[in-house]
Design a protein around this nucleic acid. Structure first.
Length: 272
DNA sequence: CGTGGCTCCTGTTAGC
DNA sequence: TGCTAACAGGAGCCAC
């Protein structure tokens, strides 16, 4: 469900509300991808300082330590003064003096991890090696991006998904940005022309920024921490549209598998 | 080291 | 209608 825009929209929807909150209690449901890493009770008394994001991780800074939250494939956060009774898929809840923060995650690929901070070995293992932040104009530079492409012989679609060059581009947006820049998903990164690489660089920034601005994509059931669905009907131009006519040329959209993930593209518009 | 395949888990949908 | 299999927005891990 959540790619960078959805994670960022979630962050913005509760960050300022939870700032300064004191933790009063923590409840865990079924196991998530990783254990919390500490006794839930040991978090009681800590104070939330700010909520940041790195890639698809939400980083909740505490006066002592840092919570890392990942939404995995099916996770969503809610933050509110009062919430309904815990449901079968609510696996983490943090009670604070400003409200309840709750993670609902049916598939449990998500995680909440308590660390000592960004230098904690557990945090470093997950954060080190992440690529550039595409919405950070300082960090996401054309120079580094084009050099990164030249350094890899991987097909471009799985490279985008890997997060090693640029973070936050998930399976939907990967297909969409490649369609927008008219690049075949199977093309080796180092074989992409400068013109196409520049289009891809621009498309990643533009499409992700627009998605954030519009409140994220609600393909199935995304909603932010206020419970509001996204309004970015990304009118996915290729994702999920196999067999349907390309919005640009009318040719049927094709579907292929790359690394166990579906890729959608137009065989005519996106030639190598 | 880079790359590709497998894996975790549950819910929904496509196909017979 | 009902069962079964395939597939789903992520990404770490392990074997080549």
């Amino acid at each position: 469900m959540p790619e960078l825009p959805e994670v960022e929209v979630t962050r913005r929807s509760f960050a300022s509300q939870i700032e300064g909150a004191k933790i009063l209690g923590v409840t865990m449901g079924k196991p998530l991808r990783w254990p919390l890493g500490c006794e839930p009770q040991s978090l009681v008394g800590a104070q939330v300082q700010q909520v940041r994001r790195r890639g698809k991780y939400l980083l909740i800074d505490l006066d002592q330590g840092m919570l890392m939250v990942h939404l995995g494939m099916s996770g969503s956060l809610r933050f509110a003064p009062v919430l309904p009774l815990l449901g079968a898929h609510d696996h983490f809840e943090m009670h604070t003096d400003k409200g309840l923060l709750r993670l609902n995650d049916p598939r449990r690929f998500g995680a909440v991890i308590a660390t000592q901070g960004e230098q904690d070995p557990v945090a470093r293992k997950l954060l080190d090696g992440l690529g550039m932040e595409p919405l950070d104009t300082q960090q996401f530079s054309w120079k580094r991006f084009s050099e990164g492409l030249k350094a890899s012989r991987s097909p471009i679609k799985p490279l985008l998904l890997s997060g090693k060059l640029v973070v936050g581009v998930g399976n939907i947006y990967a297909s969409e940005v490649l369609f927008a820049s008219r690049i075949a998903p199977t093309l080796a990164a180092n074989m992409i022309s400068a013109v196409k690489a520049r289009r891809l660089f621009d498309a990643i920034r533009a499409i992700l920024a627009l998605a954030v601005e519009r409140g994220g994509t609600t393909l199935r059931d995304f909603s932010n921490a206020d419970g509001m669905p996204g309004h970015f009907q990304l009118q996915a131009k290729v994702y999920g549209r196999d067999g349907l006519p390309c919005v640009h040329c009318g040719q049927p959209i094709a579907l292929l598998r790359q690394g166990q993930r579906s890729t959608f593209y137009c065989p005519r518009c996106q030639k190598a």
